[in-house]
Design a binder for these strands. Structure first.
Lengths: 205, 205
DNA sequence: CATGAAACGGAGCGCTTGCTCCGCCTGCTC
DNA sequence: GAGCAGGCGGAGCAAGCGCTCCGTTTCATG
């Protein structure tokens, strides 16, 4: 019960506070992209041209800062990917994957975060929003590709999601032609024409 | 030129020294398997029931210790995998991959090391022996599967190696049925029947 | 055994990292 | 423009890391 009469308007923050918060998010996003999730807080503060005290007043913990920064990044990724859809199901699916891996090549830390949100990972709740941004998009791509009959029917959105993470882990550390070949092979395996009997997703063996 | 007359017999080390060296390697291998490559040296020493001084007389650096331990692990992996070959090319290839991923599930740190030996990785020389143990085996499996006509002809041993690393990164963090499905899809993509035109491994685009 | 060379253990050094504390400064209100 | 709630910076703390140093103990030899 924050206020007696109505919802608290939350009193607009001081202008410098808002600016610094934005700088911190930008700096964090940039550094995560460049070097992955284990960045020094001091370095984030330095790039944001801000003191340590400022950093920790805006975000209770390093994790919280990275989390907020990643939410931003994933949201804009999802937006851009949605905008690129053409309606041709297979082209959209393979285009999405290729684009995701290209992003990952440029920012090795990106799928790092996505990977940490895999179901069953320890302390995954904090990064769930990463999947929540991109997850529905993948689900939609899979649905469309099923409908057009180009994707083998026993493939789930979860399968595609896992494949993306797996390929994402190698994309930044090998030359581009290599991972494009791997993606190509994987897509061939996903085609309706390659269907062989797939193990049940829930049964233990 | 270590000795003037003949090869130095290297003067058998003291018995306790030899025992402690073995304990250190075992402890290191166990901890790498359980928790990956960033283990505390103190913990290795503790598990080996050995002091810090002992650890650092036997190995000049933490890296050197991990390296020696990994060489052991990879050698025995390669040996076991070779022994499991049946001569049926496709079964051998898919069996090798499934076995590798099962090992990786039990010891998340295993392919960590293998991954660090990817060509082009910084400071990769130290871990090259990991690939040298398993690389030739993969090459042989690929050759046999090409000969039997079951593997699509444009696939290289490097492709298979990369696929293994990629799948290995997710195998420990998802339930077993999930990664088995992914492996299944990948194998379908590798079959000769799925052949579609694959990008050139060397040409930039 | 006695004895010396070699191996042993673990306290401690120097460094990095996440986070806190507190005196100073700034933007908003009247 | 005066006053002050609140934001600001950065020195410094505690914990964790790889590694070293040195007094003590152990093994192999005659």
């Amino acid at each position: 019960m924050p206020s007696p009469s109505a919802a608290t308007p939350a009193a607009a923050p001081r202008s410098d506070a808002a600016r610094n918060r934005g700088r911190l998010l930008d700096a964090a996003a940039g550094l995560i992209a460049e070097r992955g999730s284990d960045v020094d807080v001091r370095e984030i503060a330095r790039r944001a041209e801000v003191g340590m005290g400022t950093l920790y007043r805006h975000f209770p913990t390093k994790e919280a800062l990275l989390d907020a920064a990643l939410e931003h990044v994933f949201t804009s990724w999802a937006t851009a990917a949605s905008a690129a859809l053409t309606g041709r199901a297979w082209a959209d699916l393979s285009g999405f994957l290729a684009d995701a891996l290209t992003r990952q090549t440029a920012s090795p830390g990106l799928l790092d975060a996505y990977c940490q949100a895999l179901p069953g990972q320890a302390g995954n709740t904090a990064r769930q929003h990463c999947r929540q941004q991109v997850g529905p998009l993948i689900a939609e791509l899979v649905r469309a590709a099923h409908a057009s009959g180009e994707l083998r029917p026993d493939i789930t959105a979860e399968d595609v999601s896992l494949l993306l993470v797996a390929l994402g882990r190698i994309a930044p550390v090998v030359p581009e032609p290599s991972w494009r070949r791997i993606l190509h092979v994987t897509l061939d395996g996903l085609r309706a024409t390659s269907a062989t009997h797939l193990p049940d997703p829930d049964r233990p063996s």
